[in-house]
Amino acid sequence: MFLTERHITPLIQMVVGAQPDPIGCDDCFGRVAEYAEFQLANLEIPEALQAIENHLRQCPCCRDEYKALLEGLRAL
């Protein structure tokens, strides 16, 4: 199974955009509610939650969920 032309840009983006990420999806899930509240209130993100922000930048799966979460919360 070979990769083709259409895979090149996504692969390069995955590689070049990689930054160290000390947490994983589980930690992110556990604290993303707090993170969302700071963001929705336009408050500065405290240092303790910056790892969440970093993970969201690195993890498309959590980032998709986070975008959906914000849309949902804005509707309440």
């Binding site: 899930f29 993303v32 509610a33 969302a36 509240e37 959906a68 949902g72 309440l76």
Partner: peptide
């Protein structure tokens, strides 16, 4: 209780939904 209850609930519901 680290966030509002509904924020927490919507996090869980969003993951189930997505």
């Amino acid at each position: 209780g680290h966030s509002r209850f509904l924020t927490w609930a919507v996090v869980i519901a969003t993951r189930v939904g997505i």
